[in-house]
Simulated assay, not measured.
Amino acid sequence: MTPTTETADLHLEPGCLSASCILALDLGTTTGWAIRDHDGLITSGTTSFRPGRFDGGGMRYLHFANWLTEIDRLSGPIAAIWFEEVRRHVGTDAAHVYGGLIATLTSWAELRSVPYEGVPVGTIKRHATGKGNADKDAMVAAARARGFSPADDNEADAIAILHWAIETNGGVA
């Protein structure tokens, strides 16, 4: 995991929980993440949940749950989680991985009473670029326009989700 740390103007609504820690995720084998800490600092990056050669089928999800716990311990406590809600996958394997990550995320959050919410793909893209069907390059360009240096489209999507959550909901689920 190679995180990048950037700061940006957070246009928070009056009365929002500006001191709360919120996490945004673009779930997949390579998961993009962005987190706003208690001080308003935004950190983002990607991490891989690709199973190792000798890992069993559930190890990807165990690693993901452990990663969430570590993020919560180091940067939290996490007050809310926002994630990209994908309704259509090109491949069956991607759909299965996404379903497993969603199940892991929601059970992890439920056990800790952390609110979570999915944001439709088109909503994220429209908020970031003005087009609900923006491509990966446009999402990376939108993140760069906000002053970030995303490693890839996964990180760019997580940054866009985080900004959507902050700007439309004050970061609170």
Rank of each mutant, 00 (worst) to 15 (best):
E110V: 00
A94Y: 03
F83V: 04
H89M: 01
P77R: 01
R53C: 01
G57N: 07
R73L: 04
Y61Q: 09
W82Q: 08
L62Y: 10
A95E: 11
H63L: 12
G56D: 15
I78P: 03
R60K: 13
W67P: 06
A94V: 01
R50G: 03
A94T: 09
R73W: 03
E110Y: 10
T69C: 03
I78M: 05
Y98D: 09
G57Y: 00
E84V: 07
E110I: 00
P51N: 14
T69M: 06
G76A: 01
M59N: 13
L74C: 04
R50P: 08
E84S: 06
W67D: 09
T69R: 15
G91L: 11
I81F: 02
L74N: 10
L111N: 13
L105E: 04
V90P: 00
W67R: 08
D93Q: 14
E84F: 10
L101W: 01
V97T: 14
V97K: 09
A79R: 15
I102H: 12
A80T: 10
G100P: 02
G56I: 08
G56L: 10
V97D: 10
D55H: 12
A94R: 14
I71W: 12
H89Y: 02
E84M: 06
I78V: 12
V97A: 10
G91Y: 01
G100T: 08
D93T: 09
G99A: 11
H63T: 13
D93V: 08
R73Q: 13
G99E: 06
P51S: 14
S107A: 11
T104D: 02
G58Q: 10
R87P: 00
R60G: 05
Y61H: 10
A79L: 12
G100I: 08
F54H: 13
Y61R: 06
R73N: 06
W82L: 08
G99H: 09
F49Q: 10
D55T: 05
F83T: 06
M59Y: 09
G57V: 02
E110Q: 10
G99I: 02
L101Q: 14
N66I: 00
A94F: 00
W108F: 15
D55S: 04
V86P: 00
L101R: 02
L101V: 01
R87D: 06
A109V: 08
Y61F: 15
F49G: 10
